[in-house]
Structure formats: structure tokens, C-alpha cells
Design a protein around this nucleic acid. Structure first.
Lengths: 112, 112
DNA sequence: TCTTTAATTAACCACAAGGTTTATTATTGG
DNA sequence: CCAATAATAAACCTTGTGGTTAATTAAAGA
């Protein structure tokens, strides 16, 4: 995998288990056992997914006795959202109004 | 890699070469040689990246004699953008105004 | 038909991803 | 100290990724 932040972010999001974990954490902090409960998967597998998310800075982890609560660090998603938004005009019809407006203005002022 | 569409989309975006290819294609169609030119990478390597992008439905490809022009299929990005937007309130300060407003209304109307 | 150009396929390599089971570490609490 | 709980580490397996070079297919055109 590439080592830049955006690549790590997208790579971390490319697994449905990890996206589900982020969804859980949007409800609040959770321990590894909490997180693992809904999945038909071993605890070490979940632990590895959490490591991927942590290396991507999508979560951070604390320490409370033998528990390592994980919490969402959603700000890491901002650059990914911004990157995709750079392409929004290529698909989102709500940009057509703006495009039409710009086209009309151009026709009116620079019609040569 | 997981086989669902969202996972394929994020996985395809997790490589900087592929993101650069999408950026090129946002300027218009291009052939494999066109696309490969700026990269210090063999033609087969670029061909493989294009295959990943095509399997993810981020590009589509035509045929013009021995050329296979690729073009951007940005609508595939919409579900990825929507997914990330579901987390925007966890980082975007522009949502704070909305949050504050909702909190104030709640205080004013259901203060028990 | 033969050559040239465009692109993919084949075969290979190194390494990372995602999973397993077993073993260890860390910490609490009787 | 010892047992129980929480979590990670180690070792292993299979498959995919990202790259290479060499060979092959596809089409155009002299």
C-alpha cells in the first residue's frame, strides 16, 4: 500500500468490517470486545482491523485498566471528502444549475 | 479485497497513481499511452491500474482502432461521497451552527 | 503481406492483507 | 500470589497488489 495519508485513509475504508467498526464508534467509545461482538470473526482479526484504523488515524485509542477503548477520529475523513468533492461536478446534477448559469453569463459577455 | 461496490471504490482510490489517472481523465478521454506518459512506470503497470479502475466502474473504456480510450465514470464516486458525508457532523464545524440551533430550540421548547 | 503502433497477456517476484489458532502480556481483584 | 479477563503478538496460510520483462494480439497502413 502507498504510504501517503490519503491512500491510507482510502485503504482503511476499503473493508466493510472496518467501515462497520467506524459506524459503531460513531455511537461512542468501545472496547475491543464490544467491537468484536457483532462480527463472526476472531478477536485477533478485529484487533488487526483496529490497528489498520489506528495507523490511518481514523481512530485513536486510550487505556483504562486492561481495556483499550477506541474512539472515532473523524477529522481524518475530511481530506478524503475534499478529494472526492473535487469530482462532484462530474456527476452531481445540483452542479448543472451552476454550469448553466456560467454558460449563460459567458454567452452574454464574451460572445465572439 | 472485499467484493462489494463501496469497498472496490475505496480500494481503487487507495493508490496515488490511480488517483492521478482519474485526475487526468477529468480533463477528457485519453489512451493508455497518453495516460502512461507522465509516470515512470511500464505500460503494463498502467494497464493493470486501468483494469482496477474499470472493475471498480470508475472508468469505462471504448475502442477506436487499436486505441482503447478511457473516460471517467465519476458517478461511481457518489456512494463513497455519501458514505463519508454521514460522518461529516463529527468533524465539520459548519455543522456546529446547526447543532447549536437544534440545542437552543430544544432548550426553549422542552425544558423539563 | 509485412511493418509499425497500441495495448494486453503471461510468467514471475516481493510483499501486504485478512484470516486462523496458539501463546503471551497486562491488569484487576479475590 | 494466583486466577480471571482483555487484548496483542507470533506463526502460519491463502490470496491480492503492484511492479517487472518478454511474448502476444489487434488494427492500420505502406
Amino acid at each position: 500500500m502507498a504510504t501517503d495519508q490519503l491512500s491510507r485513509t482510502f485503504a482503511a475504508l476499503s473493508d466493510p468490517t472496518r467501515r462497520a467498526i467506524l459506524a459503531m464508534l460513531s455511537q461512542g467509545e468501545a472496547t475491543v470486545n464490544d467491537i468484536a461482538a457483532p462480527f463472526e470473526m476472531s478477536l485477533p482479526a478485529i484487533s488487526k482491523h483496529l490497528q489498520v484504523l489506528e495507523r490511518a488515524a481514523l481512530i485513536s485509542r486510550g487505556r483504562d485498566a486492561q481495556w483499550r477503548p477506541a474512539r472515532l477520529n473523524a477529522v481524518t475523513l475530511a481530506p478524503a471528502a475534499d478529494w472526492i468533492d473535487g469530482y462532484r461536478r462530474f456527476w452531481d446534477r445540483s452542479f448543472d444549475a451552476l454550469d448553466d448559469q456560467l454558460t449563460s453569463e459567458e454567452k452574454g459577455t464574451t460572445n465572439d
